[in-house]
C-alpha cells in the first residue's frame, strides 16, 4: 500500500467509525486552534449530517411519523449499515425499506418498511427516464385484427407495489399536514401503482383484476393472453369490455409508452 492509500483508508475509517483509535490522528497536525481529533471530528460530524439530510429529503413522511429523535436514530443506524457506494446522493436511501424490514426493532412496526418503500418509489419515479407515450388516437388507429397479438410496454417510471398496511393513506395525511390514521393491516396485500406523467407523480390502488392484467402486460403477454387470463377472474362475457377499458385508462394516464 502506498502512503496515500494508507492515509485515505485511515481517514475514511475515521469517518465511518469515529470512536475507535485510528492511526490517522498521528497524520493530522494539531495546533492551538484545534487538535487533530477536533479537526477530524468536523469531517466525521459533517459526514453524518449530510447523509441524514439526504434521507430527510427522501423520507419526509417516515420522518414525520417517527419524529425527529427516532428518525435521527434510524438514520445513524442506516448510515452505518449502508455506506454510500454511488457518486450521487440520489441513490443513498435505496435500502431503507429493506433495512427497516430486517431491523430487530423497526420490523415490529411493519408499516414503516412499507411507507419507506412507497416514498422510495416516488423518488425513483421522479427522475426515471422520459419517454413518449401512446395516445388515445394511437389506440383508435389499431386495426381490429391486430388487437389479439398486441404487446404493450409500460412507462419506465411505473412501479408496482404491494402493501399489507395503509402506508399510502398515512403518506397522504402527512403530506396534507393532517393527523395520520392509525396503521392498519389489511387481510390481503393491496396492489398499488406509482408513476410519473409529464413531471407529476401519481399513485393509485389497483383492483385484483387490474393488478393481474398490469403484471401480465409487464411480463410481455399479448392482449389475447391478458384476456384469457382475465377469464379466470371475471365472467367471460365481461372480459373484452373490461380489458379495453383498462387499456384506455392506462393510455390516458400516460402509463403505456409503446405497443
Amino acid at each position: 500500500m502506498t502512503l496515500l492509500q494508507n492515509t485515505q483508508r485511515d481517514f475514511q475509517n475515521y469517518l465511518l467509525h469515529p470512536s475507535g483509535a485510528n492511526p490517522i490522528e498521528q497524520q493530522v497536525v494539531s495546533d492551538a486552534r484545534a487538535d487533530a481529533r477536533r479537526r477530524l471530528d468536523i469531517y466525521a460530524e459533517a459526514y453524518r449530517m449530510r447523509l441524514e439530510e439526504a434521507l430527510e429529503e427522501d423520507f419526509e413522511a417516515l420522518h414525520t411519523l417517527l419524529g425527529d429523535d427516532q428518525f435521527h436514530a434510524l438514520c445513524l443506524g442506516y448510515i452505518d449499515a449502508h455506506p454510500s457506494q454511488h457518486p450521487s446522493l440520489r441513490h443513498f436511501g435505496q435500502h431503507m425499506s429493506e433495512f427497516l424490514h430486517r431491523h430487530v426493532l423497526y420490523s415490529k412496526q411493519p408499516v414503516l418498511a412499507e411507507l419507506a418503500a412507497f416514498e422510495w418509489a416516488m423518488v425513483s419515479a421522479f427522475d426515471a427516464a422520459d419517454s413518449d407515450v401512446i395516445t388515445p388516437d394511437d389506440v383508435a388507429r389499431i386495426p381490429a385484427g391486430d388487437w389479439a397479438s398486441l404487446r404493450f410496454a409500460a412507462h419506465t417510471s411505473a412501479q408496482r407495489l404491494e402493501f399489507f398496511w395503509n402506508a399510502p393513506a398515512l403518506w397522504s395525511a402527512i403530506r396534507n399536514k393532517e393527523t395520520p390514521p392509525a396503521p392498519q393491516r389489511g387481510e390481503k396485500p393491496q396492489a398499488w401503482l406509482v408513476w410519473r406523467q409529464e413531471l407529476k407523480i401519481y399513485f393509485r390502488p389497483l383492483s385484483v383484476e387490474e393488478a393481474w392484467s398490469w403484471d401480465a402486460v409487464c411480463a410481455h403477454c399479448n392482449f389475447a393472453e391478458v384476456c384469457a387470463g382475465l377469464c379466470r377472474l371475471l365472467p367471460a362475457q365481461k372480459v373484452p369490455h373490461y380489458a379495453a377499458g383498462l387499456l384506455q385508462r392506462w393510455v390516458s394516464e400516460g402509463l403505456i409508452k409503446s405497443f
Partner: peptide, 20 residues
C-alpha cells in the same frame, strides 16, 4: 478525494500535499 474502497463519503476531503 471523496472516498476509497468504492465508498463515497460525499465530502471534499483534503489531500496531503506530497510528491506522491
Amino acid at each position: 478525494w471523496t472516498g476509497v474502497q468504492r465508498k463515497n463519503m460525499h465530502d471534499l476531503l483534503p489531500l496531503p500535499y506530497t510528491e506522491e
